[in-house]
């Protein structure tokens, strides 16, 4: 076990980062479950940049939109739960990065792309990108085997 590689402060920071991201993902998933009218359709329909054509064609396809909405909502929930519990957190992190990058490329804050009103100011870098990078840290500096279900699973095995 590599649990001694981190100082206590490092461990605390990494676990805090994991849980904060977990909180965010899980809440985003739950709030969408709580609102049956929620759909990513408008987000995709108004997509910009290189992949806008692809996202828009998805938005116009009812069946595909149902699949996308389902996968998005339950993806958010499962990633959140995985990171919180410390169960399969590596996979959860990579899945989370993938989702965030998809959100990013649909609406990247590039020059001239400011159709959607924002609560802050961004150019090239936005919170989706930062959260994806933070998840890379969570994936590459795992803590679930120290604080998390993975610790118990290893012990039981």
């Amino acid at each position: 076990m590599k649990n001694n590689n981190f100082t206590n402060l490092q461990l605390f920071s990494l676990v805090a980062l994991r849980w904060l991201i977990a909180w965010h993902f899980l809440y985003e998933g739950l709030i969408k479950i709580g609102n049956p009218a929620w759909t990513a359709r408008n987000y995709l329909a108004s997509a910009e940049w290189l992949f806008s054509g692809f996202f828009r064609s998805v938005a116009l396809n009812d069946t595909l939109m149902q699949v996308v909405d389902f996968m998005n909502i339950w993806g958010l929930v499962l990633i959140g739960v995985g990171l919180f519990l410390g169960f399969m957190s590596k996979y959860a992190s990579y899945a989370g990065i993938l989702l965030l990058l998809l959100y990013y490329i649909a609406h990247p804050p590039l020059f001239g792309n400011d159709l959607v009103p924002l609560e802050g100011s961004y150019i090239i870098v936005n919170k989706n990108l930062i959260e994806a990078a933070a998840l890379a840290v969570v994936a590459l500096f795992p803590t679930s085997h120290i604080i998390g279900l993975e610790r118990l699973i290893r012990k039981i095995k």
Binding site: W19, A22, W23, L26, Y27, V81, F84, L85, G86, I146, I147, G148, L149, E150, R151, L152, R154, K155, I156
Partner: peptide
């Protein structure tokens, strides 16, 4: 390996925070 009290505590440490989110 046996599971001790410390493992259980650390293994399930996130539960109070998940409860808070709930």
């Amino acid at each position: 390996m046996s599971v001790n009290r410390r493992d259980v505590l650390k293994g399930l440490a996130s539960l109070p925070f998940m409860g808070m989110l709930g």
